[in-house]
Simulated assay, not measured.
Amino acid sequence: MSHLPPPTRAAYDERDAVSALIADAFLPLAPVAWLVPDPDQRRAILTANFRILVEHAFFYGEVHTLEDRSAVAVWFHRTSPIPPPVEYERRLAAVCDPYTDRFETLDKLFDAHHPTAPHHHLAFLAVAAEKQCTGRGTALLRHHHAALDRVGLPAYLEASSTGSRDLYARHGYLPRQPFHLPDGATFYPMWRPAVQTRRSQPDEGAP
C-alpha cells in the first residue's frame, strides 16, 4: 500500500468535513436506516450527530486521516473514564429531532456492551465511497495498531456490517456477543487483544 497517501492527524477545524465523510460512508448501513427512517433527513442528522462525537474525540482521543482526506479513523482513549460531550443531551436533542429517542437507545446499547478494561475505542472508520476497497481503511488501522502495540494496549470497536466485521477480524479483532437494534439491525462488538512488540519489551538482561 505504499502508493496510498500517508496517515496524518486531522486538525480541529476539519471536524465538519470529517463528520460529513463519515455520514456519507455510513448512509448505506442497516442501523442508519433505523436511526433516521426518513431518507431525506438522514444525511443531515447523521452529520450533525457525528460532529458531536468527532469534536469530543479531539479532546479525548485522536482523529487520523489520510493526506488526501479520503478516509478517517476516530479513536477514543478509554484508558481511564472520559466524560460525555459537553451538554450532550441538549445537543443530541437539538440535532436528532424527531429521532432523538432512537439515538438514545443506541447510546444505551453501546454503553451496556462496552468493555471496562483500559483500551482505545475505534468509534468510526470511514472511507469515501469512490475510494473504498483500496486499502485505505487498512492503512489507518495499521497506523494506530502500531502505536497501540508499542505500549501494549488493546482496542475495541462495534462493527455495523458483516463486511466490516470480516475486515476487522483480518486485523486481529475477536468477536464478542452481537447486539441488536429494535428492528433487528445488528452490531458486532470486537476486541483486539494487547500485542507486546519487541520494542515495548524490557531489554534482555534487565532486572
Rank of each mutant, 00 (worst) to 15 (best):
H113L: 02
E89L: 14
V127L: 11
P115K: 06
L122H: 01
A94E: 15
V95H: 11
D97A: 14
A123N: 01
E89Q: 15
Y88S: 08
P118M: 05
H113I: 02
E130P: 02
A126P: 06
A93C: 10
F103Q: 05
Y99S: 04
A94Q: 15
A128Q: 04
D111E: 14
V95T: 13
H113G: 02
R90C: 08
R90P: 00
F124G: 00
A129P: 01
R102T: 10
A94K: 13
A94V: 07
Y99E: 07
H120E: 10
T116N: 10
E104D: 10
A126H: 04
D101M: 08
L109I: 09
V95Y: 12
T116M: 11
P98M: 05
A129N: 09
A128D: 07
E130H: 13
R102E: 10
T100Q: 12
L92S: 03
Y99T: 08
F103I: 08
L122E: 00
D97S: 13
K108C: 02
H121V: 00
H120R: 04
P115C: 08
T100I: 06
T105E: 11
L125D: 00
P118G: 05
L106S: 09
A112P: 02
H121C: 03
A126W: 04
F103D: 07
V95A: 12
D107V: 00
A117W: 07
T105G: 00
K108S: 09
H120M: 04
V95R: 09
R90V: 12
R90E: 15
D107W: 01
D101T: 11
L125W: 02
F103G: 04
A117N: 08
P118T: 04
